Simulated scan of single mutants.
Amino acid sequence: MKVIIFGGSGFLGSHVADVLTNAGHNVTIYDLKKSPYLMDTQEMIVGDILDVDRVEEAVKNADIVYNFAGIADIDEASKKPLESIKYNIVGNSIILEACRKENIKRFVFASSLYVYSKAGSFYRSTKQACELLIENYHEVFGLNYTILRYGSLYGPRADERNFIHKILKQALIEGKITREGDGEELRDYIHVMDAARGSVEILADEFANQHVILVGNQQMRIKDLLIMIKEMLDNKIEIEFIPTTDSLHYEITPYSFAPRVGKRLTSRTYLDLGQGILDCIYDIYKQINPKP
């Protein structure tokens, strides 16, 4: 099938693009910048999702459209509410309208577990708004969709906006990890490659017009995660917890708001959290200590 991925140059989108290409699909990436991970058989469109004409031209003749574009960092969204509304809600609506006009087979949207929560600020509210608009497009125009709600992602190609990447880099450079709060927060970590495979598996008919939860098989408290990282680094780093008044993130569970219930999709095979973290440590170490 012909697949276009808005936001396909980023952390998750680029991995999904790879899985789709390896499965034999014709993949086009649409993003503000050229993907550094672009494969020879993938096409690239550099553009803004607020550019209506360019988005409509990109979607022409597509079978499947993914939207990973927009502001995906909770802290950034809380500092830039208007930008979050523009790119997360208006941008998504522009893509939806283009999909309606082209009668695409499936629209796939990257949402978040924060839609279940009172935490998440503008990030949460923009994701909730998008989910409602997608459902409206299905009810009124018959546009088929799948909404994906992701847990805490980690893995290669992440940057400083990703929590695990940020703390591993701090540990390797400063010999310490600083964390706001007491570390009792519980998270469902999922390796980005597992998430990418799940993001393609949902193209099966059974997931049409469904909300799908993609999380890992290993739930862990942040405090325990930090201790595990410390042991991996031969107990040579310090862990510091500092007070916070931050209410943007949830503690134990995101489930306080009740949008449409999602199906939980977990793979029988998955990358072990410890192995995944170790691989990230090696990758980040090579980035900060390049060979001459």
Rank of each mutant, 00 (worst) to 15 (best):
D182H: 06
N144A: 11
Y189R: 00
G183P: 06
L153D: 07
R161S: 12
A158E: 08
E139C: 08
G198D: 08
V192E: 03
Q170M: 14
F163E: 05
Y137I: 01
I164M: 08
I173H: 03
G151N: 09
P156A: 07
Y189W: 13
V200T: 15
Y150V: 06
F141M: 13
L148Y: 07
G142P: 11
I134N: 11
I167D: 01
L172E: 01
F163I: 09
R161N: 13
R149F: 02
C130H: 06
K169R: 15
F141G: 07
L168T: 01
C130Y: 05
F141C: 13
G183W: 04
I134Y: 09
R157A: 00
R161D: 08
E185V: 00
E184G: 03
D159N: 13
I177H: 04
R179N: 11
N162I: 00
E184F: 01
D188F: 14
V200D: 11
G175T: 06
I173T: 14
A196Y: 00
E160G: 05
N136V: 11
G175A: 06
S152G: 01
R157C: 00
H165F: 14
T178E: 15
M193T: 09
Y150H: 04
K166G: 02
G155H: 04
H138W: 13
I177T: 08
N144I: 03
H138P: 01
V200W: 10
E184P: 00
G175V: 06
I134S: 12
N144G: 03
R187I: 09
I177C: 08
G181P: 09
A195W: 08
T146S: 09
D194V: 02
D188G: 10
A196W: 00
G155F: 03
M193L: 12
G155N: 02
D182P: 05
I177A: 05
K169I: 01
N162Y: 04
M193N: 10
E201S: 15
K176Q: 12
I147T: 09
Y189N: 03
L148E: 05
G183H: 07
G181T: 07
Y154S: 09
F141N: 14
G155M: 01
Y150L: 13
K176V: 00
D188W: 14
I134C: 12
L153V: 06
L132H: 14
E180T: 07
I177R: 09
G181K: 11
D182F: 04
L186V: 15
E180M: 12
I173F: 07
P156L: 07
R179D: 00
K169P: 05
Q170V: 00
E201R: 10
N136E: 14
